[in-house]
């Protein structure tokens, strides 16, 4: 099982390395939205709007990134591969890969975004921790939802409808955590929120692990 997960993650990394345009398009998306934000706020932005806008940009980047995750798996050829692999290994591998991708994307957008709009965050360690936990939670929920949405005809539209309400509280929590990171340079004050993010991660991974085999078998 662990061996399969490792091989599947490596397969996804290799595939993404071969077709880099997906990654580039996401980076371009982050760059252009940050620039639009810079233009519309004329470089002066209050701190709460900074946080809200940052997480909205990250949310849409994440939805675009995870939407593609089961696109390749629906062709006949890939179905053959998955008679060999364990479905649980597939979803775990996908979640790991998407988490890594989103953590990378969010960190890059943090960099680009603060380049254009400044960086009001004082508690950098907590905020980086919040980014890592938050993007992996986003990834684990979105991976399962994209697996569900891939079973329907209207993939992209349904993905937004299904995932938005599920991600809304997560987003709210991320914004609150970031607001704590604005003023307090103390890991313990944000600790409760970070713990919640970690728990949400565990819960969604566990649910994917339990439910995905039923979704996979057609």
């Amino acid at each position: 099982m662990l061996h399969q997960v490792k091989e599947l993650v490596l397969k996804d990394i290799r595939l993404n390395g071969r077709e880099r345009n997906a990654l580039y398009s996401m980076l371009l998306y982050v760059l252009s939205t940050s620039y639009v934000a810079y233009l519309s706020f004329e470089g002066v932005i209050d701190r709460n709007s900074w946080i809200a806008l940052f997480w909205i940009i990250v949310l849409f980047a994440a939805m675009n990134a995870c939407l593609q995750s089961f696109k390749k798996e629906l062709t006949d050829q890939s179905l053959f591969y998955y008679t060999i692999a364990n479905p649980r290994a597939i979803i775990i591998a996908k979640t790991i890969f998407n988490s890594a991708l989103l953590i990378f994307l969010t960190l890059v957008s943090y960099f680009i975004y603060s380049l254009f709009l400044g960086n009001p965050i004082t508690a950098n360690v907590s905020f980086i921790l919040c980014i890592i936990l938050g993007s992996s939670a986003l990834a684990s929920v979105l991976t399962l939802v994209s697996a569900i949405a891939s079973k329907t005809n209207n993939n992209a539209g349904l993905m937004a409808v299904l995932s938005m309400p599920l991600l809304f509280p997560l987003l709210l929590n991320l914004i609150q955590t970031s607001q704590i990171c604005l003023s307090q340079n103390n890991l313990f004050i944000a600790g409760n929120q970070l713990l919640f993010l970690a728990l949400l991660n565990i819960a969604s991974v566990l649910l994917s692990y339990l439910l995905f085999p039923y979704l996979w078998r057609d």
Partner: peptide
């Protein structure tokens, strides 16, 4: 099948 899975998640 799909809606059962989403129902549990929900």
């Amino acid at each position: 099948r799909v809606s059962a899975i989403y129902n549990i998640l929900a």
